[in-house]
């Protein structure tokens, strides 16, 4: 708090703007009352100013429309929705190998100068994003095809050519179909997830970084997974490698790779999964908050395949299979035991 002297010659508007003064008007405490009484006593000619400033603060503050934090966040979500809807598909020049080879080489020369200029202007990473429940296929400049699952982000540097490697950063889940020899030369393709790097030379595989872990499932070809402080893991098709952020242990298993990439065919496949995992997936991929009141059920296992855009079917199947009642409060979905 400032000294009394500070208010000896202050003007009405500056007094009204003073944070300590406003705090006293809107939130008087014995301590504040005492301080301002002493100001009035020391500078009696300021009494009118103090009274006017008090009315000004009270009057102005009463015109303020308070807005709750929830409303601010909801408004921001509406903004995000608009951004996603308005987002133009990033236009990428991409040449088909056989048909356009000659045309491409000619245009490449023509575009080289222009490209250099553009490159210098916009060297920040390109980002692709999906919303909850949205799947999106992106063709990268080298011809590799990435399918992004819901609620995921893919970032790539623009300068692959000069770097001599294709660096990708992923949060969420994506399936990669990597082209072997982009632009006639072998170039490493690396997916960074924070916990691990997946190094590729032409292959098809799935990467999932949800829930502070990184899980790689290889469908075809060969990849090498580099995990910090661990020997590299060379994967064969049908291998699953999983690591948790901050831990050095690696889990390795043989799996049915097709089931891990079923989401690409717009299918939600639950294959003998624990209810706890299903609840987590509904949250990750659809933004649904589901709670199961009977915690014993969380270890039960369940299998089902539904269309990816019908997650509510999973809830209905669960309710039928385990005799649960579905109640919905705002964004919360609760599954509770049906009374017999």
């Amino acid at each position: 708090m400032k000294l009394q002297e500070h208010y000896a010659t202050i003007e009405t508007i500056d007094l009204a703007r003073d944070p300590d003064f406003r705090a006293w008007i809107l939130n008087p405490t014995p301590e504040r009352n005492q301080f301002w009484a002493s100001v009035k006593a020391l500078y009696p000619y300021q009494q009118a100013t103090i009274e006017q400033a008090r009315l000004l603060v009270g009057g102005l503050e009463s015109t303020w429309h308070p807005i709750s934090e929830t409303d601010v966040q909801a408004s921001f979500q509406r903004l995000r929705q608009k951004q996603i809807e308005q987002q133009p598909e990033p236009k990428r020049v991409f040449f088909r190998p056989v048909l356009f080879r000659y045309a491409a080489s000619v245009s490449l020369v023509l575009l080289a100068g222009l490209g250099w200029w553009f490159y210098n202007r916009t060297a920040s990473p390109i980002e692709y994003k999906t919303a909850y429940g949205q799947i999106r296929t992106v063709t990268l400049p080298d011809g590799s095809v990435v399918t992004l699952n819901a609620n995921s982000t893919l970032q790539m540097a623009v300068d692959w050519q000069t770097e001599g490697r294709r660096d990708i950063r992923l949060t969420g889940e994506a399936f990669f179909d990597v082209s072997k020899k982009p632009l006639g030369q072998r170039m490493p393709f690396v997916v960074h997830t924070g916990a691990a790097d997946v190094v590729v030379l032409g292959t098809r595989f799935n990467v999932n970084t949800r829930r502070t872990r990184t899980q790689v499932v290889l469908q075809e070809g060969k990849v090498r997974v580099n995990v910090q402080k661990q020997p590299d893991v060379l994967m064969e098709p049908g291998d699953l490698v999983e690591t948790t952020n901050g831990k050095s242990a690696i889990r390795r298993a043989r799996v049915d790779a097709d089931r891990y990439v079923a989401w690409r065919d717009n299918l939600l496949v639950l294959d003998d999964e624990r209810l706890s995992e299903i609840v987590q997936r509904l949250n990750d991929e659809y933004g649904l908050t589901v709670s199961i009141s009977n915690k014993k059920l969380l270890n039960e296992r369940f299998s089902a395949t539904v269309q990816a855009n019908r997650p509510e079917l999973v809830l209905r199947m669960l309710s039928a299979a385990f005799h649960l009642k579905i109640t919905k409060k705002e964004n919360q979905i609760e599954l509770s035991q049906l009374q017999q």
């Binding site: 809107l26 939130n27 008087p28 000004l56 603060v57 009270g58 009057g59 503050e61 009463s62």
Partner: peptide
């Protein structure tokens, strides 16, 4: 919002 004024003062302002 809480403004520390009574009804009469509020109307005056």
């Amino acid at each position: 919002v809480e403004d520390g004024l009574n009804q009469e003062q509020q109307e005056q302002v």
